[in-house]
Amino acid sequence: MSAIKVEEKLFQNRYKVDSGHPHISIIDEDKCRNDCQAQACTVCCPAGCWTMEGNGQVTVISDGCLECGTCRIICDEHHNVEWDYPRGGYGILFKFG
């Protein structure tokens, strides 16, 4: 499974990254580490934005985000994802959609 690099797919896409204004964040990092068994965000995000670090901490880097909403909806036990759309004009810019 790890042979598939999502980065190579995302490389084909067009983005206007809003540096310093991530539109997705974790509300309570301890919850991810201590309370969440599944950490489904790290598997289900289609852009691979979510990673489980070696120390058990979950991190999110939303630069490659496709703005689908999966991570927010899938966190239905802990509701631990702060999710908004990027500011107008920023984020993914689909060439074909």
């Binding site: 499974m1 999502v6 797919k9 289609p46 909806i73």
Partner: peptide, 14 residues
Amino acid sequence: MLSDFKKQGTTPYA
């Protein structure tokens, strides 16, 4: 379905 993805453990791109 997202609920199935959650259970299955396969990434969408895989």
